[in-house]
Every structure is written in C-alpha cells, then in structure tokens.
C-alpha cells in the first residue's frame, strides 16, 4: 500500500476545499438556511405537522440530504475533472498508487467534506427548530453511506465529462430534480397514488425516507428497503468505477 500517496491526494483535495471555503463551506450553509427559512417559515405556517412531526423539523433531514447529494456529486466530480482539465492528471497516473488508493483519496476527500457540511447544517437547523434524533448512530451511518455513494457517483461523472457543461449537467438536471421530487419537502402520502408509484423509481426517495426515519421514526418506505437501495446504488457505482479503471476509460488510451 502507498498510504502516503493516498493521503497526498486526500489532503490536497481537502486543502482545495479549505482554500475556497467561501464557495465550498459557507455557500451551501447559506443556501440550506434560505431553503429552511423560506420553506420552513412560509409553508410551515400553514402546514402544522406531517405525520406527527412539526413541518419545520420534518424538512431538516430532506434538506441535509439535498445538500449532501449535490455537494458530494459536485465536489467529487470537480476533484477528478480538474486535474484532467489542467493536465496534472499525468502525475497521478504515473505515480506508484493503485486504483483503489486513487479512489479512496479523491472520493474519501469529497465524502469527508460532505459529511462535515451535513453535520454543520444539522447544527444550524437546531438553531431554528428542535430536531430530535431518535437513532443517532443510524443517522450517522446514513450520512456516511450517502456521502460516500454520491461522491463515487460524482467521481464517475468527473471522469465521464469532457467539458464544464457536461460536468454541471448531471448535478443540475438530474440530482437536484430527483431530490426535490424525492420527498424532501413532503411525505409521499400527500401525492396521488400514481405519482406515489412513480416516486418509487426515484432512488433519492429511499435515502430521504431512511434518513428521516433515523430522526423521527416516520418513513415513506420501510427502513430495510431504504438501506438496501442505498447499498445497491453504492455497489452499482463501485462496479462502474472498477470498470473505469480496468478499461482506462477516459483516463488511459
């Protein structure tokens, strides 16, 4: 194992986030707080409770997920796309590091950042409303699992993308709509039956539902199904990453 090499990538990526702290740390917190104020205060004044949970508190897990998914995808995709763009990727490819070490370095750094952001937003939310956490360890497990899985997904996009537009298109046109339609701001029960069925094809539904269960023990789908689907998506991403390195797709000719 080249642990130093792996750590070099990890450290370099985290240093980049810290160097651009306004964009990478402050901006997601401000955005989430705005969502919280607008949705929580405006809608919350009319919708008192969802499934016995005050509306302001109900949307907190969804908001954390929204931020976690977009930040994981954006960070990880940018992390690997940028060296491809600047040309410095040659150094990583010619270094004595294994594919696994490269993935752990890049994906680990993006996931770490998302995780920290998720926790910061959770504490920020506590300033606005009371957010009890029924199963803190399960909540943390969901945070870690989601950060890692979607950072893997972002890593894949960062390798697939050939320009900045492609890099942006997946987070903007796929991740954000799926998250908004994934029960972030509502319970699936409020939808007509047809749209409830359609929603079950949205993977984000399972993440938000399971994550929310760890807070309030209310969910749209059973907890085990949530966990199972999250693992399934992670395995799918891992398989894709394995294939990328095996074939050298977009990295080696």
């Amino acid at each position: 194992m080249n642990l130093r090499g792996m750590y070099a990538i990890y450290h370099f990526e985290l240093a980049r986030a810290l160097r651009t702290w306004l964009q990478s740390i402050i901006s997601p917190i401000v955005t989430t707080s705005l969502y919280f104020v607008v949705f929580g205060a405006a809608i919350g004044s009319r919708v008192q409770e969802v499934e016995g949970v005050p509306y302001g508190a109900f949307i907190v897990p969804g908001l954390i997920m929204l931020m976690l998914l977009t930040q994981s995808v954006t960070n990880a995709s940018f992390g690997i796309f940028f060296p491809r763009f600047t040309g410095t990727i040659y150094e990583v490819l010619s270094a004595p590091v294994s594919y696994l070490e490269v993935v752990v370095g890049y994906v680990g750094a993006a996931a770490t950042k998302s995780l920290v952001l998720g926790l910061i937003i959770l504490f920020t939310a506590q300033l606005f409303v009371d957010v009890p956490i029924a199963h803190p360890f399960l909540m943390l497990a969901f945070l870690v699992l989601t950060s890692f899985t979607f950072s893997l997904f972002g890593f894949i996009i960062g390798i697939w993308a050939e320009d900045f537009e492609q890099l942006q298109v997946v987070p903007l046109l796929l991740v954000i709509p799926l998250t908004f339609l994934g029960g972030t701001f509502y319970s699936l029960d409020v939808l007509p039956e047809f749209w409830q069925t359609v929603s079950l094809f949205n993977p984000v539904v399972y993440l938000v539902s399971g994550f929310r269960w760890s807070f309030y023990e209310v969910s749209d789908v059973p907890l085990l199904v949530s966990l199972g689907m999250t693992f399934f998506f992670m395995l799918l991403c891992l398989t894709l990453v394995w294939w990328i390195f095996r074939t050298g797709y977009r990295l080696k000719s």
Partner: peptide, 20 residues
C-alpha cells in the same frame, strides 16, 4: 499544466508524497 492557485512548495511536496 494549467493549474494556478497552489504554491510552488505545495506542488513539490504533493509530488514527493504522492510517490510515497
């Protein structure tokens, strides 16, 4: 290469570490 914002020292330190 087109990287811009890191310092010379950070870059050479990174290279050394990357190679273990």
């Amino acid at each position: 290469t087109r990287d811009a914002f890191e310092t010379v020292w950070d870059k050479v330190s990174f290279s050394r570490m990357l190679f273990g």
